[in-house]
């Protein structure tokens, strides 16, 4: 088919941050589907909780302290996370490197405390459906935590190589910040469901 030039694109930039970049939208898409998974698992938990009059099924109450510590750590980590985002937008290498190290550590810390959360549930997954749902919810979030911390560490290492000097990599840092927000945000309802709903019954 015949063509006639009508538009010149040569002056356009070669990368963009946030909603301008396709990766940001891809991350949002994966958040949407993972969020749906979380919501359905929480829905299944609530469905079973309303089905049985004495939910907890006469199991002991979970010890909320390890979970509460994880919650506090995660909320605190949001501050450096957003400072890092600002530097990533400016493509400033030094502060971004420092920020990535900080975020890697702030990712590992709750993961270590998480290890103590499982025994603090005071029930095993194969005791009854209540125990199963607690383990499933906690396991689901832990999977996200592990994958995102792994992702953060790999990106941190990458930022210390010459590959880091690229607009795209700074964009990746921005998307990593975005995903960490999601990991923190999804934890809040799960925390309430695991540790505080059983106290109502």
């Amino acid at each position: 088919m015949n063509q006639r030039p009508a538009l010149d694109l040569s002056a356009l930039p070669t990368f963009g941050h946030g909603p301008r970049s396709p990766t940001w939208w891809g991350t949002l898409g994966f958040m949407a589907l993972e969020g749906t998974g979380f919501a359905l698992a929480a829905g299944a938990y609530l469905y079973l909780a309303t089905l049985w009059p004495n939910w907890r099924l006469s199991a002991p109450q979970p010890n909320h302290w390890p979970g509460t510590i994880v919650t506090l750590l995660l909320i605190v980590s949001l501050v450096p996370n957003h400072i890092l985002n600002g530097y990533a937008k400016q493509c400033a290498m030094r502060p971004v490197r420092i920020g990535m190290v900080v975020m890697s550590l702030l990712g590992l810390a709750p993961l270590i405390v998480r290890w103590f959360e499982f025994p603090a549930l005071n029930i095993y997954w194969d005791t009854n459906a209540y125990g199963s749902m607690l383990w499933v919810l906690l396991g689901l979030h832990t999977t996200h935590l592990i994958t995102d911390v792994g992702d953060t560490i790999v990106l941190m290492v990458l930022m210390f190589t010459h590959h880091g000097y690229s607009g795209r990599r700074f964009g990746d840092v921005g998307d990593n910040v975005f995903y960490w927000d999601f990991v923190v945000l999804t934890w809040i309802p799960i925390y309430l469901l695991i540790y505080w709903l059983p106290r109502l019954g």
């Binding site: 015949n2 006639r4 010149d8 694109l9 040569s10």
Partner: peptide, 9 residues
Amino acid sequence: QALPVATGL
């Protein structure tokens, strides 16, 4: 007749 196109990539 002729499809308008963009250039500069």
